[in-house]
């Protein structure tokens, strides 16, 4: 068990190293990152100065080692838009993104798990068909459009909820629902198929034949076993939530890292873009690491001795 956790940790480090390469080369996709950063009215001398200040005149290998060693110490350079260390700004904004993503994940799970179970138990019923239809719709709908529709209904017409910002707790409702619906759509289909598979197993029949109540059979015997694939996909979906937050935060002007990324990209604030990408990837990798560990806890069949 310990060996497994350690080997996964090693893999995590290797993946983060790969991410650092992705982040490093991304801003160099056009060759010289100065071309991306420098305002159009800069002359050759000013550009040369900026290039030297950022170390872009050094050999590529040296630039990467400097970037990596600084990144490891949490130094991504200064955001020129905010005139503060990019790292500080990322941490400030990350809290909002995590809050939004957790609320969305909570909404997603609350809708998906019960809906999936009921769909599996009452297969081909009207409710099952309806939830299939809603799930397809939820996957096909662009999340930002759903957000705009909610604004039209709840802010413009009903005047119940604020359309943007994070000044009051109620402001979390619409962005979280917008993000959570997509997740619920994907997860409810999976819960349904995982439950269907488990419900046809011998141990469920045994549990039924020894006279257990339906509730006990479903919750204790079936759902516990169906949870394994659900947890995997839930982990992947959290990554999708982080990605979706970029768009949804922009729709609702939610002050998270996603919206900050768009702002930084628009003004070519390279330090912020690099730091933001790095932390999005780190969050995603850590989530998946946690999921792997949770696996061992919920699946007694997995033993790593």
């Amino acid at each position: 068990m310990r060996a497994f956790i350690l080997s996964r940790l090693l893999q995590l480090v290797v993946t983060m190293f790969m991410v650092s390469l992705v982040v490093f080369f991304m801003v160099r996709l056009r060759g010289d990152p100065i071309l991306v950063m420098a305002p159009p009215n800069f002359d050759a001398e000013q550009i040369a100065k900026l290039r030297a200040a950022w170390g872009f005149d050094k050999p590529l290998g040296e630039q990467y080692i400097t970037f990596l060693s600084k990144a490891l110490r949490g130094d991504f350079g200064k955001s020129f838009q905010a005139n503060r260390p990019a790292m500080e700004l990322v941490i400030e904004r990350l809290g909002y993104t995590y809050l939004l993503a957790s609320a969305a994940a909570g909404i997603g799970l609350t809708i998906a798990i019960p809906l999936g179970i009921v769909s599996a138990l009452k297969r081909n019923s009207l409710l099952d068909l309806l939830s299939t239809a809603l799930a397809s719709l939820g996957t096909a709908m662009p999340s930002f459009w759903l957000g705009l529709m909610l604004i039209i209904i709840f802010s413009v017409h009903l005047r119940m909820l604020p359309a943007f910002g994070a000044l009051e707790p109620r402001a979390l409702i619409m962005p979280a629902v917008t993000l959570g619906v997509g997740m619920a759509a994907r997860l409810s289909r999976l819960t349904r198929s995982a439950m269907l598979e488990v419900l046809s197993q011998d141990y469920v029949r045994t549990a039924r034949s020894k006279g257990l109540a339906q509730k006990a059979v479903v919750l204790r015997h079936a759902l516990r076993n169906a949870l394994i694939p659900i947890v995997t996909v839930f982990g992947l979906q959290l990554g999708w939530l982080l990605g979706g937050s970029v768009v949804v935060e922009s729709v609702f002007s939610w002050p998270g890292l996603g919206r900050q990324m768009i702002d930084s990209i628009n003004v070519r604030d390279i330090a912020m873009v690099q730091a933001g990408l790095f932390f999005f990837a780190l969050s995603f990798i850590l989530i998946n690491y946690a999921i792997d560990v949770i696996y061992i806890l919920i699946d007694p069949r997995i033993r790593f001795d």
């Binding site: 993946t15 992705v22 982040v23 999708w240 990605g243 979706g244 990209i265 990408l277 990837a281 995603f284």
Partner: peptide, 23 residues
């Protein structure tokens, strides 16, 4: 596959947003 892991670790839409910002 490690290269694939590295690219998959950055959520697709964020990766694309950042690249289009740069390019």
């Amino acid at each position: 596959m490690r290269i694939v892991d590295g690219l998959l670790a950055v959520p697709f839409i964020i990766l694309v947003v950042a690249i289009s910002g740069v390019v």
